[in-house]
């Protein structure tokens, strides 16, 4: 129990640090959104009027007070207003988040399916050359950047083959290529870790014992290796989530999809600090939450960790 509480405590601390770091970095940016919006000559405002605006938007109060105001707002779910458009940040996030969640979740599921299929095929293929080929696939795809893959996919499937429209696609059709572009570079390291850990488990003496009982290779893999090999892959999956978040930004930009990625890109262009602050904290929260889940899953998958967890408690 106190193992779980400890992990949750750690997660809260990480979130607090992420919030503070984001705030400090955004404040340290040279210039701010108000300058971009009002101080360009086109707005035609006098310095006095700008000073008045700054006052009313709370830009002139001391920085530490701003910090606590923002923090207090975040704790009750009030993320403030976009400096650029004046809409509440929560509205922007609420309209962008579902799109991104659909994209990221589908990509994650596809990546897991691909990685597992590849790892199993690499193990069970009876042709040596096929094994070697399957084993070298992941290292190839690890080095492929998301944006390049996205552009190649559009080139080949939309422009050359004309299979999938890029402009105004249906909800499913519109998902296929972005999911592929996002999933492949994530599937690759997962498959690599899985193949390695399956290899490791297969050399363990207990596998020889199972074999001596008359078990087939498929029985060994599915009933004895799988649960042992999934632990390292789980760690990587948690960490790859960061990759997924940053990949989503690029994918949405390349494919012109609405979502958190697009919102981020626009907010960065406009130096819209409140929007960025909210996106950073929400991304951090998702990342921390998933890795917390991974941590809590370990003891369920490996009973040895359960004992350690209770002993430490």
């Amino acid at each position: 129990m106190s193992y779980i509480l400890g992990r949750i405590g750690q997660a809260v601390i990480v979130l607090a640090i992420a919030f503070t770091a984001a705030f400090v970095l955004l404040q340290a940016l040279p210039g701010d959104a108000l300058l971009i919006k009002f101080e360009s000559p086109e707005s035609g405002l006098s310095p006095d009027q700008i000073a008045l605006l700054r006052d009313s938007l709370g830009a002139n109060i001391p920085i530490w007070q701003q910090f606590f105001d923002t923090l207090g707002g975040f704790l009750v779910g009030d993320f403030g207003y976009s400096v650029q458009s004046g809409t509440p940040v929560s509205v922007i996030i609420a309209s962008a988040l579902p799109n991104t969640l659909v994209l990221a979740t589908s990509a994650f599921v596809v990546a897991i399916v691909l990685a597992v299929a590849l790892a199993v095929l690499a193990q069970l293929s009876w042709l040596p050359w096929l094994r070697t080929m399957l084993r070298s696939l992941p290292s190839l795809f690890i080095s492929v950047p998301v944006f390049w893959l996205g552009i190649v996919l559009i080139q080949v499937f939309s422009f050359r083959l004309g299979w999938l429209p890029v402009i105004n696609p249906g909800p499913i059709e519109g998902l296929i290529m972005p999911v592929a572009a996002l999933a492949l570079p994530i599937a690759a390291p997962m498959a690599q870790v899985l193949i390695r850990s399956i290899d490791d488990v297969l050399t363990q003496p207990f596998i020889a014992v199972v074999r001596s009982k008359g078990a087939s290779e498929w029985w060994i893999l599915s009933r004895n290796v799988a649960r042992n090999a999934v632990l390292p892959a789980l760690t990587i999956a948690g960490l790859l989530l960061g990759e997924l978040i940053s990949g989503a930004v690029i994918t949405e930009t390349v494919f012109g999809r609405a979502g958190i990625g697009r919102a981020t890109e626009q907010a960065v262009t406009n130096q819209d600090a409140p929007v960025l602050q909210a996106i950073v904290v929400i991304s951090a929260a998702i990342f921390v939450l998933v890795n917390l889940l991974v941590d809590l899953l370990y003891p369920l998958l490996d009973p040895r960790l359960k004992t350690i967890a209770t002993v430490n408690a």
């Binding site: 363990q204 003496p205 649960r227 042992n228 998958l301 040895r304």
Partner: peptide
């Protein structure tokens, strides 16, 4: 039937 050399690593740790 096979009785292995090293009992410490010869049982599946997660079963």
């Amino acid at each position: 039937g096979l009785v292995p050399q090293d009992p410490h690593n010869s049982l599946n740790p997660v079963r």
